[in-house]
């Protein structure tokens, strides 16, 4: 997996500067611009809160609940990724209650989904003492779903999907406005699907790959990455990353080329790029073969 550069929160100042909100975070006073979330505040002071469904380029969906924190006076825990900081609120990020919920969420996910390609999660499972195996060998899981390989560009391996909704949001009105995929079904049986569960090639998909860019688990991956993982040749440590400018048109999107053994194996785009915010089109994302066509 690539390491996406940590986004630098650069507030775009329009008119008057935003007021600051002061509240107590783990018994320390913090001040953040109005409209910031608890997660923003945690990042500003260097507190590490686990997140899965949170995307730095998307509106928080707060579906995974792994970032929950305790807000004094509230009946339930609050998702740090979307709860806005309010003046005078008292937030604790590391209470037993919050840690318990995070641990259970990790256990529920790790026991029902293949998290083998999800960055950071193995560390969190250790940190929170999660034991996904305790639900027994018969625990229902989606990890056995077969990967959907129906086109030459990318693979949808829904056995790895935690239903974070990020691909749907990136495909829909938050970025691409293609609306090729949506959540279908209900409850534990829900999936990300095109209409009538058709192959991607029969859908509205334009192969921008912006869903891959936001996928937190590797459920969506380049066909190149999927094939190399199958063959056992995928080696992130041996990869280099080079950020350049896409040569196809005049927009000037940044491409980050992931290179292994002198072959481009994957293309991403920096999330803090003011042009792309991590988004590309099919040409920038997948049109790299000519670079390495040596015939």
């Amino acid at each position: 997996m690539t390491t996406v550069p940590k986004p630098v929160p650069v507030p775009v100042q329009l008119g008057l500067p935003r007021r600051l909100v002061e509240f107590a975070l783990d018994d320390e006073p913090v001040r953040v611009p109005e409209g910031s979330t608890i997660l923003d505040a945690c990042e500003a002071v260097g507190k590490d809160i686990p997140t899965l469904c949170y995307g730095d380029t998307l509106t928080p969906k707060n579906a995974c609940r792994v970032c929950v924190v305790e807000v004094e006076g509230a009946r339930t825990l609050a998702p740090a990724c979307s709860r806005k900081a309010e003046p005078g609120m008292t937030v604790r990020t590391d209470t037993e209650r919050a840690r318990h919920s995070r641990k259970i969420v990790l256990e529920l996910l790790a026991s029902s989904v293949d998290l083998s390609t999800t960055p950071h999660v193995a560390g969190w499972i250790r940190e929170y003492g999660a034991e996904p195996d305790r639900f027994g060998p018969d625990a229902a899981t989606v990890a056995d779903r077969a990967p959907k390989v129906d086109n030459d560009l990318y693979v949808r391996d829904y056995g790895k999907c935690i239903m974070c909704y990020k691909c749907v949001d990136a495909c829909g009105d938050q970025w691409q406005n293609t609306f090729a995929i949506a959540v279908a079904g209900r409850g534990f049986d829900n999936t990300i699907s095109v209409e009538h569960d058709a192959p991607l090639t029969d859908s509205a998909c334009v192969y921008c790959g912006n869903c891959i860019e936001v996928c937190p688990t590797g459920a969506l991956s380049f066909k190149t990455e999927f094939d190399m993982r199958e063959a056992g040749t995928w080696d992130e440590d041996a990869q280099t990353e080079a950020t350049t400018i896409c040569a196809y048109c005049g927009v000037g999107c940044n491409l980050t080329l992931h290179v292994q053994d002198n072959e481009i194996v994957k293309v991403t785009s920096p999330h803090d790029n003011p042009v792309t915010h991590g988004n590309l089109c099919i040409k920038g994302r997948f049109g790299f073969q000519h670079v390495q066509n040596r015939d």
Partner: peptide
């Protein structure tokens, strides 16, 4: 509850399944 969970959040989507099991 397992049938009627909408499936949006993990504690309910998977939690109701684990409880039924």
């Amino acid at each position: 509850f397992r049938d009627e969970s909408c499936g949006q959040c993990v504690p309910c989507r998977v939690g109701t399944v684990r409880q039924e099991e």
